[in-house]
Design a protein around this nucleic acid. Structure first.
Lengths: 202, 202
DNA sequence: TGTACATCAGTGAACGCGCGTTCACTGATGTAC
DNA sequence: TGTACATCAGTGAACGCGCGTTCACTGATGTAC
């Protein structure tokens, strides 16, 4: 078959998305080139028409992860703002759904430790993502406080990561609930009243 | 040569220690059986006289990591207690030295995301370690508050992990400093006055 | 209109390598007689 | 006292396997003449 004019670009996009999802769930070492290509219905040989190396793909995927994470956690009904937006973010971030679906989760909860061992490009993408995320949280605070914003995201990311690692479900739920309380208190938000229908676990 | 009566037990101990150090720095997938054996001056073939499998070793090493971490961060001059002990712990935990030496660091800063993908034994060892650590922090609080203790360790572990991932040294230092402030405030400790000589980076 | 050729995303066999694991063996020393 | 054998932590060759990467090829369609 002859290919549609933007077929190659489209395949590349699908690859980066698939890689981002797998990396969140399995880490950079957990994705294999052949597996990945099979995942989007192709064979492994074509990979190097799209990326210089697996490292190159990883760097692209790190950027993608932050983009998707932003779309998932920061998207809000337009009329909301300030504290209301932050409350929504916190509820979503510290939810059972976020814990149970690492493949769609925030990169800070899954690949932070791995980034240390990645190449320069992946690290740069990670740096940019962290800075942007911290900035957006700062903007949702009652008054700008970059150190507080950084501190809040550290705790939230740490809590979600730990809630996944802990085997006991009740203990895991408890970590998330306690962290929601702590974050709300620290950010000066009202106590737990769901700002929108809370579906904890799907 | 004939072997000393406790030689085998000693070799096993050395292996578990070496594995713990490597796992912290490289993750469970980052250590290879042959490399590890070479690291303590032996050849790979002898490994299976000590462990049923690599997974078995990993589970042992997880326990070891928590034991060492406790010795490193919780050891205090005996006269100290309460808030004073906690201040010491926080200073050590959120230090440049902890960031720069992951091979001697707290497992919560390095293997949390990996534990999700490990076997039952490793997860059980991790669970026990987390519970014990949280309990010790709780005991250092002015008054017991298990949820606060968990919240504090989440933020501290998240911050150290992130301080390692960030490329820019100044930004990394800033994460640690800001988190020390945040934790001290949250735990009701006095402001930054070094409770003992602070050697930040070696 | 028909023929020859160019294009190019994707194919699949093959590569060298390191992994976890197995197993027959080594060799120094203790024990039995 | 000397000889034969048991012990056992560690050795090193070998295994099957999956990895990242390379490369000659496919085959449907567009273009040139």
């Amino acid at each position: 078959m002859r290919y549609a004019p933007d077929q190659k670009a489209e395949t590349r996009t699908r690859l980066v998305r698939e890689a981002a999802a797998r990396m969140r769930a399995l880490g950079p070492d957990g994705i294999g080139v052949a597996d990945l290509m099979r995942g989007i219905g192709l064979t492994h040989g074509g990979f190097y028409a799209h990326f210089r190396s697996k490292d190159d793909l990883i760097a692209q995927a790190v950027g993608q992860m932050f983009t998707e994470s932003r779309a998932r956690f920061d998207r809000v009904p337009e009329q909301r703002e300030g504290a209301d937006r932050l409350a929504l973010f916190v509820t979503r971030y510290l939810s059972g759904e976020h814990r149970d679906r690492p493949d769609r989760g925030c990169p800070l909860t899954s690949i932070t430790a791995d980034i240390t061992r990645q190449g320069e490009d992946a690290r740069a993408a990670f740096d940019a993502g962290v800075a942007a995320l911290t900035g957006r949280i700062d903007a949702m605070l009652p008054q700008s406080d970059p150190a507080l914003a950084a501190s809040l995201i550290n705790e939230m990311a740490g809590a979600v990561a730990l809630s996944r690692a802990v085997s006991d479900r009740a203990a895991s739920d408890q970590i998330l609930a306690a962290t929601r309380d702590a974050i709300r208190r620290r950010a000066g938000l009202p106590d737990e009243t769901c700002p929108e229908p809370c579906k904890e676990t799907p």
